Simulated scan of single mutants.
Amino acid sequence: MARRGAPQSSGISFRQLNRTLKRGDIDPVYLVVGEEVFLRNKAIEGLRGVVCGEDESNLAFHRIDGKLGKMAEFLDAARSLPLFLQATDRPCQLVVIRSFEPGTAAESELLAEYLDSPVSATCLVFEAPTLDSRRASAKLLTNRATKINCQRIESTAEVRRWIENSANARGFSMAPGAIDYLLEMVGLELQQLSQELDKVKLFAADRESMSANDLEKLLGRSRSHSVFELTDALVSRRAVSAVQVLNRLLDDGEEPVRLLAMVSWVVRQLITACDLSSRGCPERELLSQLGGRWNQRRVIAKAAAECDLGQLEELLVRCSESDVAVKTQRGPGSRGVLEGLCRRICAA
Rank of each mutant, 00 (worst) to 15 (best):
M1G: 04
R3W: 06
G5C: 05
A6S: 14
Q8M: 02
Q8F: 01
G11H: 02
G11E: 03
I12L: 10
R15D: 12
N18R: 09
R19M: 00
R23L: 05
I26G: 02
I26D: 03
I26A: 02
Y30S: 09
G34S: 10
V37Q: 13
F38C: 08
L39K: 11
G46L: 02
L47E: 11
V51S: 02
V51K: 00
E54S: 06
D55L: 05
S57W: 08
L59P: 10
A60V: 10
F61H: 09
G69R: 10
F74G: 01
L85S: 11
L85W: 10
R90M: 15
R90G: 12
R90W: 13
C92V: 14
Q93E: 00
S99W: 01
F100V: 08
A106L: 14
E107M: 08
E107T: 04
L110Q: 15
A112R: 13
E113F: 05
S117N: 10
P118R: 15
S120H: 05
S120M: 09
C123V: 07
P129F: 00
P129W: 01
P129M: 00
D132N: 09
R134Y: 09
R135D: 04
S137C: 09
A138K: 06
L140N: 04
A145W: 04
A145P: 00
T146L: 07
K147V: 07
R152L: 10
I153L: 12
I153N: 07
A157Y: 07
R161V: 07
W162S: 12
I163E: 05
S166D: 08
S166I: 04
A175M: 05
P176I: 14
D180T: 12
Y181S: 03
L183D: 12
L183M: 08
E184N: 09
M185A: 09
D198C: 07
D198S: 13
K201C: 03
L202C: 06
D206H: 15
A212K: 11
N213V: 03
N213A: 09
E216Y: 11
L218Q: 08
L219T: 14
E229N: 14
L230A: 14
D232S: 11
R237D: 07
A239L: 10
S241D: 15
A242P: 09
N247H: 15
D252R: 02
D252T: 00
G253M: 08
E254A: 14
R258A: 11
L260T: 05
L260S: 12
M262W: 08
V267H: 01
I271A: 03
D275I: 00
L276V: 04
S277A: 11
S277H: 05
C281S: 14
P282G: 06
E283G: 02
R293N: 13
R293V: 03
R297Y: 06
A304Q: 09
G310H: 00
S320G: 11
D323K: 03
D323P: 02
D323E: 14
V324D: 03
V324A: 06
A325F: 14
A325H: 12
K327A: 01
T328E: 00
Q329W: 09
R330M: 10
G336E: 13
V337E: 15
L341E: 09
I345E: 01
A348D: 00
A348H: 02
